[in-house]
């Protein structure tokens, strides 16, 4: 059986997804992806009129059903400490992260 997602392509996706996987995980996930793609190919079994529109939502939004946009004003959070309380590492109002990879501009 041909595999649409080869090991090489899979490793590329893992990199894009910002993941690291064990061998066992990688083997299972790649197999499941290839199985799911077989189901996805069922979509090709129906001819599509080139004018068929895409639907990014099922329910159409009209002027009457769409809420008005909020005014574009700055609202301060009443309690920033509460939000920062969830961060893994903070220094006063700063969130601490490891070294950010960067290149010197030429």
């Amino acid at each position: 059986m041909s595999e649409e997602i080869t090991r090489e392509l899979f490793n590329h996706l893992v990199e894009l997804a910002a993941l690291e996987l064990s061998e066992t995980e990688a083997e299972y996930l790649r197999k499941q992806l290839n199985n799911q793609l077989k189901a996805i190919h069922e979509l090709e079994s129906t001819p599509l009129d080139p004018d068929t529109p895409i639907a990014s939502h099922g329910v159409p939004y009209t002027a009457a059903t769409t809420p008005a946009l909020r005014s574009d004003t700055l609202n301060s959070h009443p309690n920033p400490a509460k939000l920062l309380a969830g961060a893994p590492e903070v220094d006063e109002n700063y969130i601490i992260v490891p070294e950010i990879p960067h290149q010197k501009l030429k």
Partner: peptide
């Protein structure tokens, strides 16, 4: 060693198989 590595390890250890499958 750096931010990217922290992202990868945090996501690798924090997500179970199903979120990983969906992201990929």
């Amino acid at each position: 060693e750096d931010l990217r590595s922290m992202y990868r390890k945090s996501r690798a250890q924090g997500f179970g198989l199903q979120p990983k499958l969906r992201v990929l």
